[in-house]
């Protein structure tokens, strides 16, 4: 028994169902099964496993389906259709437009208000203070001399 035979056996048995095999393939499989225990076990496991898999296929009856299955789909579809339409979103859009207008107006009010001038004066004051400090420094220097 050659390892290449085991590979060939595996390839044939994995890819084809027993009824799909040609005569020569069937003969090869039968002969190899007799001579190689490992391949025989693997093949049987595959046949039994796949049979169990097919046997465990779901068999749902119409009576087992939840009563509101259809209704849930139709209701969700109605909701989604409503959401897709402009009619659903226009109150939110209007609200957003009003809010952005209000925010814009508030910003305009703030930038044009009296609070801007003190900032300018504070800057002027700062410059005045700086020149005062410079003057004090020069006085100190003259005193030191």
């Amino acid at each position: 028994m050659k390892p290449s035979d085991c590979r060939k056996f595996e390839s044939i048995t994995v890819d084809w169902a027993p009824e799909e095999l040609s005569e020569s393939q069937s003969d090869f499989v039968a002969n190899h099964e007799k001579s190689c225990q490992a391949c025989r076990m693997a093949y049987r496991a595959q046949v039994i496993g796949l049979d169990l898999l097919r046997g465990s296929a779901c068999t749902v009856d119409a009576t087992e389906i939840s009563a509101n299955f259809e209704e849930t789909v139709v209701r969700n579809l109605r909701v989604q259709k409503k959401r897709d339409s402009w009619g659903y979103w226009w109150p939110a859009g209007l609200g957003a437009a009003i809010a952005s207008l209000a925010a814009f107006a508030a910003m305009q009010l703030v930038s044009g208000s009296a609070s801007f001038k003190p900032i300018f004066y504070r800057g002027q004051e700062a410059r005045n203070n700086t020149s005062g400090i410079m003057r004090s420094l020069s006085t100190v220097r003259e005193y030191n001399r």
């Binding site: 595996e10 994995v14 890819d15 693997a42 595959q46 496993g49 796949l50």
Partner: peptide, 12 residues
């Protein structure tokens, strides 16, 4: 091919 091979290995 891979699915059947793995299925039978796991089943074994």
């Amino acid at each position: 091919h891979s699915a059947r091979l793995r299925f039978r290995t796991i089943y074994l």
